[in-house]
Amino acid sequence: MQRAKGIEVKSVVVQVAATLALAFSFTTVVVLLSGEPPLAAYGHIVAGSVGSWLKVAQVLRVWVPLVLCSCGLLYTFQIGLWNIGVEGQVILGAIAATAVLRWGAAVGAPTGILSLSLLAAMGCGGLWALAAGILKTRGGVNEIFAGLGLNFVAVGIILWLIFGPWKRPGIASMSGTEPFARELWLPTVAGWRISPYALAAALGVLVLTWWTLKYTRVGLACRAIGRNPHASFLLGLRPDRWMLVAMMLAGGLAGLAGAYQVLAVYHRLIPAISSNYGYLSLLVVMLANYRWVWIPPIAFFFAALNVGSIQLPMMLQMDSSLAGVIQGSLVLATLVVHGWARRRQRAS
């Protein structure tokens, strides 16, 4: 057991290193071809993401939603589902939170309204995931297609709300809704750029996810069904039901991330409210080899890249799309390395 764990840790480290090497050698070539200094570029990214407490706080601000989504995805990956609909679940959470805040702004008691909006976001995200789950278990629709379809629907709904019923008075713009009053922002400490409540919540969710997956019936069921649905059915587990539970847990946490984007980051609803954190989280979890323990550092690395890459256009006048090249090649490298790892696994 101890040895198996050691090998697994080693394989994750090797995979991460290989992905980085592949992605960064590719981007280094791109940077060199564009005639810019790659060392300086990477230096700026590092300094721009962990160079000061302020930067770290900014990275943590991105880390929170990534961790929330990734924890949720652990349940669905464990049970063998590819919950690509996580993006739409984030959006639905953001919509639900906004709905509660809009309604609650008139009612008063900010703390109550904020808590209610978090609950609504989890509920809505969960239900949106449940829809994909039911399509899978009852309709026989592959969860990837169901999830992607529902993502499109979610984008449609958010665009309609922003341009229609929730527009700013006299204005028709995709900029977003009217910002919320300050008492409806997630409380933070003066001078901080990250809400300590959000940080605490993300850590809490991490611990809770670990505990649930390791020690509870939910975790046991997810793992058993993920490994062998037929055997687990014979053992008296109902894969259908547990899949719906896993989907709802994932959707709930994604919804929470959506609420965080509204309450703590943008303070209003915008079309790009999810910031692609759902898709990014899928990569985080894949790169973490579906192990919770690797999620915090990998999410931190991805968040640091997001935050630090803004230094490139700012300091080197590198065409701003180069930041996207780094992220894009990381995505590709992840896929390549995963394929390579799986083939090795099968071979051994």
Binding site: V16, A17, A18, L20, A21, L39, G43, H44, V46, A47
Partner: peptide, 21 residues
């Protein structure tokens, strides 16, 4: 591959330290 990864990490970190700002 492991050597490669280590290399890239070292390069990134050293680059950050050496960069004059």
């Amino acid at each position: 591959k492991r050597v490669w990864g280590t290399w890239v990490l070292v390069v990134a970190l050293v680059g950050a330290l050496l960069w004059p700002g």
